[in-house]
């Protein structure tokens, strides 16, 4: 009798664990979707975007590097690479100062992922491209001007 009770308990425990694991697996995409920071991406100015992504004091730093063309003929496709020599980088944000909504992309880097991201962005007109990096809780920035010949946000 007692043995059976043990077995029964074991059984329920195991199935609960499975259910929890499955639940966790199912929840993940949903949580992610909910996590999209609408206020940050909808912010109309760089300062608003900073405060929406939890900006504190920011230090301009040479350890944050932006690779971008000096002149972009087509503002619809501007290749940008952000990298850093800083240690413990957990977040990288890319902003375009003069876009209608400056925040372009936000990357969360788990341990083991290098502080290096490369992507292509749209720019409405000539503007500074800003990279913000969070390393060990502190915020560092760098900016680089990209001249745009044909804007990438028009019709």
């Amino acid at each position: 009798m007692n043995m059976k009770r043990r077995l029964f308990l074991k059984g329920t425990l195991a199935s609960t664990t499975i259910a929890l694991a499955a639940g966790a697996g199912l929840i993940t995409p949903q949580q992610l979707l909910a996590a999209w920071p609408e206020s940050a991406f909808g912010a109309k100015s760089v300062d608003d975007a900073y405060s929406a992504i939890g900006g504190g004091a920011r230090t301009p730093s040479d350890a944050v590097m932006i690779k971008a063309p000096q002149i972009a003929e087509n503002g619809a496709v501007v290749p940008i690479t952000v990298s850093s020599t800083l240690k413990g980088v957990t977040r990288i944000a890319i902003l375009v100062e003069k876009n209608a909504t400056p925040l372009v992309a936000l990357y969360q880097l788990p341990t083991g992922t290098h502080p290096y991201v490369s992507t292509r962005i749209k720019m409405g007109k000539t503007s500074n491209v800003i990279a913000m990096i969070e390393a060990e809780g502190a915020l560092y920035t760098a900016e680089k001007e990209v001249k745009v010949t044909i804007g990438g946000c028009g019709g």
């Binding site: 991406f41 375009v96 909504t101 992309a105 992507t119």
Partner: peptide, 10 residues
């Protein structure tokens, strides 16, 4: 890598 993008990505 976990990424959030806005509409300004090409």
């Amino acid at each position: 890598l976990e990424t959030n993008w806005g509409g300004a990505v090409s």
